[in-house]
Amino acid sequence: MSERTERSEGREGMPSRHGMSERTERSEGREGMPGRLGMSSSSSPLWEVFVRARRGLSHTHVGSLHAPDAELALRNARDLYTRRQEGVSIWVVPASAITASSPDEKDAFFDPAADKVYRHPTFYEVPEGAAHL
């Protein structure tokens, strides 16, 4: 058993109630968030892939892949995520270049928006007969 695996298995067993274990903190990073995972150095970096499915739509996160550099990441993304004509444009972003909000900040980040109902058009009453609003 390699040293690396031993370590990671040890961590899996770590109690991590409340708050985040070191491992969780890192794993947070994934799914469009920062951080090369694990300590393995031999593998190529992780890239997050965003695809514009059709003209008029924005790029959407579709998944991730490994590639040694941006050129290959882009080509791998083409082969992996658009085999069935799923896209007209691709972005690849190094996972390590993404800064994400942390779970502890989640409420501070997002809850304040919850009471600002006036930002949504459904907040407003439209007088009967008023069209094109």
């Binding site: 890192r26 994934r30 694990g38 393995s40 593998s43």
Partner: peptide, 10 residues
């Protein structure tokens, strides 16, 4: 699987 904190290499 990698989103759970394990690398492809591992």
């Amino acid at each position: 699987a990698e989103t759970l904190g394990i690398s492809r290499d591992e």
